[in-house]
């Protein structure tokens, strides 16, 4: 392992679907404990970028480094890498045949090969972290959207990831359920979990992010602290987008 100050690093990533260049030459440095919020219009490649970062989708060119080691190199075990990069999806994607506890445990028992009793203790602890210890034996269909998403977060946390990727974690939620999920994420940020969050929740971005990245048409247009971006955006496009987004999402933003 090299002594890199960055926990996750992407160099000149390019992703092409057929004839479509989704993004080109994107570079990204993520410091340990940093919370980065990625914003940008629909179809810009935000989800694709996250999926490339944890190798769910291969990039066409470029390199990705996790703790200084190249994970895009030949012969790297992708399953091993993904254990270290947690991912939370817009539509939760809980395993429907397993209870909340089962969802959090299965990665521990089947991937990490942890003994059942130990895995159960750890899973319960993770459910506690997201405030759902009392729902451990509920099936996904018996949980609200907000609860399902918190279980999904616990499921990812259980693997002790180095980084957590969130792809619009609250976009599929009723407004009154958004707060509980953002609350858990805010708490993670305070615990210095390294996070990359794609979201339209500008309140969260403003209060929790260390850095905001504005992406458009497969490029990083502008990035900086929330203050820099919200108060002094350098690009007209950033200003325009922020204006539109606060109009669209402003109403349900307050928790």
């Amino acid at each position: 392992m090299t002594d890199s100050p960055y926990i996750l690093q992407a160099k000149n990533l390019t992703k092409i679907y057929g004839e479509n260049v989704i993004f080109k030459d994107i570079s990204l440095d993520v410091k340990k404990g940093e919370t980065i919020v990625i914003i940008g219009p629909s179809g810009t490649g935000k989800s694709t970028l996250l999926r490339c970062l944890n190798l769910l989708t291969p990039v066409n060119s470029g390199q990705i480094f996790l703790e200084g080691e190249e994970i895009t190199a030949h012969g790297v075990d992708h399953d091993q890498v993904r254990q270290k990069i947690g991912m939370v999806f817009q539509n939760f994607l809980l395993f429907n045949h397993l209870t909340a506890l089962g969802n959090v445990m299965i990665g521990l028992t089947k991937v990490k090969k942890m003994p059942t009793e130990k895995a159960k203790q750890k899973a319960l602890h993770e459910l506690e972290r997201v405030g759902l210890a009392d729902r451990a034996h509920h099936y996904p269909a018996q949980l609200s959207g907000g609860q399902q998403q918190r279980v999904a977060i616990a499921r990812a946390l259980a693997m002790d990831p180095l980084v957590m990727l969130f792809d619009e974690p609250t976009s599929a939620l009723d407004p009154e359920l958004i707060g509980e999920v953002l609350g858990v994420m805010e708490q993670l940020a305070h615990e210095h979990m390294t996070m990359l969050v794609v979201t339209h929740e500008m309140g969260f971005a403003r209060e929790v992010a260390d850095r905001i990245i504005f992406m458009e048409k497969g490029r990083i247009v502008e990035q900086g602290s929330p203050e820099e971006l919200f108060e002094h955006p350098q690009h007209a496009r950033t200003r325009e987008f922020l204006g539109k987004i606060s109009e669209l999402y402003g109403k349900k933003e307050k928790k």
């Binding site: 769910l56 091993q80 395993f95």
Partner: peptide, 19 residues
């Protein structure tokens, strides 16, 4: 989606299929 979520926690394809 279920396959995606399984792969995301580090399951191999066949583990995801069976579990």
């Amino acid at each position: 989606g279920q396959m995606l979520a399984a792969r995301a926690i580090g399951m191999s394809k066949w583990k995801a299929v069976f579990y």
